[in-house]
Amino acid sequence: MTHKQMTLSAQADAGFDQFRKPTRRDVFLSEMDKVVPWSELCAAIEPHYPKVREDGSGRRPIGLERMLRIHFLQQWYALSDPAVEEALYDSTSMRRFVGIDLGQEGAPDETTVCKFRHLLEQHGLADTIFAVVKAHLSKQGMKLSQGTIVDATIIAAPSSTKNRDKKRDPDMHQTRKGNQWYFGMKAHIGMDKATGLVHAVTSTAAHVADVTQATELLHGKERHVYADAGYTGADKRDTKRGRHWHIAAKRNLIKRIQDPKLRDLHEHIEHIKASIRALVEHPFRVIKRQFGHTKARYRGLAKNGAQVKTLFALANLWMARKRLLATTG
């Protein structure tokens, strides 16, 4: 706060806090405030952020870290641009996290929030955010191992044609999973087997086969790759020697084995492989259940792909928060 004395608004909040029990939101935001590498992220984004004009004219841009904090609030709580503006006026814990004192200033409006998101999209800064977080975690000792688990999840998109163009998003497509059809996109990830952290993310339309993204999800130094039956044939596409692919066998192939003992042995091996692959469900659960990202918010694969990559960067920080807090205090 710039002034030595708190404003009446801040004093009221502080007085109320004397008898206030911390909520789960308070605890979550406090932890994330400590584990997010704010200085590194701001340094990476700053070259693309608007500067104050030399003649002093024009509107002074809002602080970069403040806008980044608001952007992350949108990801953590699945908030649209208007919704995050309203939430900042409604939630004391969110204002404290962003650093807003309503006694001195208002929250950035939805247009400002939208422009910042477009700035990130225009310069491909979701990739930068993901890379900075990955480097930060590596510095903290969470380095990549020799095992990668690859998988994909479907993220639904609005199928309604009640829009200006009178048609569905052309970047999204439908696909069948089991006996059910889905319309939307896929998020493909490569997860480190040892740390449980995501080290690669790609996005495609929902109808794109998982196997086409397999080699894009590898960091190059792994010796073992674990995947479900959707990646059958990925080992034949891999040009690197010495890398072992552990791909789930299709159920109909197991059932065809006539010898009961041999079939039981194969089923036991498949159970072991499945128990390893199950670890990859945790990052998906974080972005879908913890952060509430169950549907594509924007129109077009590029915008939604950028959001997905940011979500997995933040999911990595959330999953590693206990280890990070233990080292940083």
Rank of each mutant, 00 (worst) to 15 (best):
V113D: 11
C114A: 14
K115G: 00
F116R: 04
F116A: 02
R117W: 05
H118V: 04
H118E: 15
H118N: 11
E121H: 07
E121W: 07
Q122V: 00
Q122H: 14
H123E: 08
H123G: 01
D127H: 11
V132Y: 01
V132C: 02
V133W: 01
K134P: 00
K134Q: 12
K134I: 00
A135I: 07
H136E: 12
L137F: 02
S138W: 05
K139Q: 13
K139A: 12
Q140R: 12
G141R: 04
M142E: 10
K143R: 13
S145Y: 03
S145E: 03
G147E: 13
T148D: 08
T148M: 11
V150G: 02
V150W: 00
I154T: 15
I154H: 10
I154M: 12
S159A: 14
S159P: 00
T161L: 05
K162Y: 02
N163H: 01
N163K: 02
R168Q: 14
R168G: 01
R168W: 00
D169L: 01
D169P: 03
D169T: 01
P170L: 01
D171N: 09
Q174K: 11
T175G: 01
T175L: 01
K177F: 03
G178M: 08
G178Y: 09
N179T: 13
Q180I: 12
Q180F: 04
F183S: 08
A187K: 01
H188W: 07
T195I: 03
G196H: 08
G196F: 09
H199N: 12
A200K: 11
A200L: 06
V201L: 11
S203V: 15
T204I: 08
H207A: 14
A209N: 13
A209W: 06
A209V: 14
D210A: 06
A214P: 05
E216N: 14
E216T: 11
L217Y: 07
E222A: 07
R223N: 09
